[in-house]
Amino acid sequence: MRVRSLILRIVRQFFRDKRTLALMILAPLLILWLVALIFNGNTYHPKIGAVDIPRQIVTRLVNQGAVVESYSSNAAALNALSLQKLDAAISFADGVPHITLEGSNPSKSKTVLLLAQKVLLQPANPMPSQMQPPVIRYLYGSANMSSFDNFGPVLIGVFAFFFVFLIAGIAFLKERTTGTLERLMATPLRRWEMVAGYVVGYGIFTMIQACLIAWFSVGVLGMMMNGQFLYLLLVTLLLSMTALTLGTLLSAFANSEFQMMQFIPIVIVPQIFFSGLFSVDNMAPWMRRLSEIMPLYYGADALRNVMIRGKGFLAIWPDLCVLLAMSLVFMALNVFALRKYRKI
């Protein structure tokens, strides 16, 4: 009963604060859309300056997707390179191809080198005619899977986590700073009821957010989705729940909204690094294990299993259990932290 009125109050408050509502619901969609625009684009066409190279090679370069411009001298090509009009310049000296790369962007350099290898090495090392081209199969994913498809699931987790953490944390903090929390502790409201009210009240908006993000990613942005939509929702929701409980718990250790923001580099950013967005395989093994205490790691793992590998409940239930357990622990700690306001 008391929990119900607390939930009702939270929902009412949230609807009065349209901007925060928009931030929580629309901001993740906006950012996901921007990321999709950047990474879902077509493959990059490197700009190559050709200095006096055979016509047939130029044709082959163009066929491989390069934009080729001819230069009369090495100096002219190098000049264009230094002005960043080109990604690479190719010339021949004594029959040996020389490639000069602009080199400040490793991914562009790689694209050029890959392309140059295909074009320049082929005639010198022709494939024996009896050897068939290999048959390529994908266990998961596909040949036209973009990098956005790869880290999209992680991003869903990151944004769901980030916005819920921040908004729920600040809302709970506001209850402390305005004195209403202390006032509530002068009513028969129990501490666990307080925490439960927040979890359910904000849980409602978290659920709406999770549904929207999942639908937007798959339905609108066309992110790769090989599993059940229901599992995607379940993982997103549980991950948000962890963010919600962690945010409200940590607000106990902040005295102002500003201090709440200080948790972003401490709590959010490391999780992003360990979430699988970047490979941590080169990290020292003991440091890699840090990911085991990070909710986002489990969320991202489950999301990838569902979306890319199309796996079902059997593959994700350990992750879900960890997320659920973390939420429960954070809730219990929060009930304990509220002792600061009333001992019983």
């Binding site: 009125s5 408050q13 209403t180 202390e182 009513t187």
Partner: peptide, 21 residues
């Protein structure tokens, strides 16, 4: 210090605290 929810109306504040007791 007045511990009230400033986004809510007076009636909503009263109703909330009334439910708690």
């Amino acid at each position: 210090s007045d511990a009230l929810y400033s986004e809510l109306t007076a009636l909503e504040n009263l109703a909330f605290f009334a439910a708690l007791v």
